[in-house]
Design a protein around this nucleic acid. Structure first.
Lengths: 169, 169
DNA sequence: AGAAAATAGTTAGCAGGCGTACTATCGTGG
DNA sequence: CCACGATAGTACGCCTGCTAACTATTTTCT
């Protein structure tokens, strides 16, 4: 590999693909480069988001719960099953997230007058303040992460990702 | 939203973005749709890969270790620190992965003649057989996941992902 | 109406990461 | 040449997710 002024130099994934070509020339690697980079990028994005959230005292799980309540609009109330379904996680996991957030004073569990098996989970004023501040920072962080991309590339990616999500799910 | 024959109907992310526009019209959401779909897609891909790996009796962590050893070529040997660095994880986590894989008989830890602090981790014949069979299935799974995409879309995505990885990392 | 099935939430125990602290060994600057 | 900082691996305890099992309640079906 002695290319001069190669516009796309080898990255970590290229190195791995070269190894596979040598060791397993029978494999069709056409998807591996794409999906490997997808995975690496998601990991990098999540790391940066997690750092930003940590500066607001939140973990990603907690942030997701507060954001789901916030975007549902006033009175910022959902029941635990709705939240676990919206965030694609187990109800047991939601129980412990809610425990943490309630201990931190960011939300309340009140009795559900319509269903005595359930609760009404509501943002406190403090929770509302924290999620609103964090969201401002969050949007800025995400925008910074894509700032190196041409706007048409963002549009293209969005279109393709939408297609893939449709077929994969 | 009463568009007829909309070529791109609303998906889960569109619904969320609509909520944010109503609740937080001050936020610049241009990155959120893109990165939200990126995250969802990665999650979907990982779920499918994990299911495939489970049918070979492997977790993703174990698979990654075996694959790193396999693609390093004969004699399929690395030291634990190399592996933890290559897989971007802590050495403590690598210790427990290696414990599991050694108990399962898929690799061996031998003394490193050159450095008595370290070990030489090597695939066993059984480990070699399992990773080779799993890799065949893995490549097929990844190719199936992108089978709904036009080849030029795969190339476009790869180019953009490469750019982003460069800037984000 | 009443039995049976479904649903809501929690608890308990397991899994697999991480950071920290520790021991053993290596390498290097005086 | 040897003391001391860096490095390799590990044990320990914590965190946060999961599944399974359980109780309480609601819904459905006959």
């Amino acid at each position: 590999m002695t290319a001069e002024a190669n516009p796309e130099p080898d990255d970590a994934i290229d190195v791995i693909l070269t190894q596979w070509r040598r060791e397993r020339p029978d494999l069709d690697l056409s998807a591996m480069g794409f999906l490997g980079r997808l995975s690496l990028l998601t990991r990098a994005v999540e790391t940066q988001v997690d750092d930003m959230l940590a500066s607001h005292g939140l973990g990603r799980g907690e942030f997701d719960v507060l954001a789901a309540l916030r975007r549902s609009g006033p009175p910022y109330t959902q029941i635990p099953s709705e939240l676990s379904a919206a965030l694609m996680m187990s109800r047991a996991g939601m129980t412990s997230r809610l425990d943490r957030l309630e201990s931190a004073g960011l939300l309340q569990r009140n009795l559900d007058p319509a269903d005595r098996r359930s609760f009404r989970v509501t943002l406190t004023d403090q929770g509302r303040a924290i999620i609103d501040a964090t969201l401002t920072d969050h949007a800025a962080t995400l925008n910074r992460l894509i700032s190196g991309l041409a706007p048409e590339d963002v549009a293209t990616m969005t279109r393709i990702l939408r297609t893939m999500l449709d077929t994969v799910t």
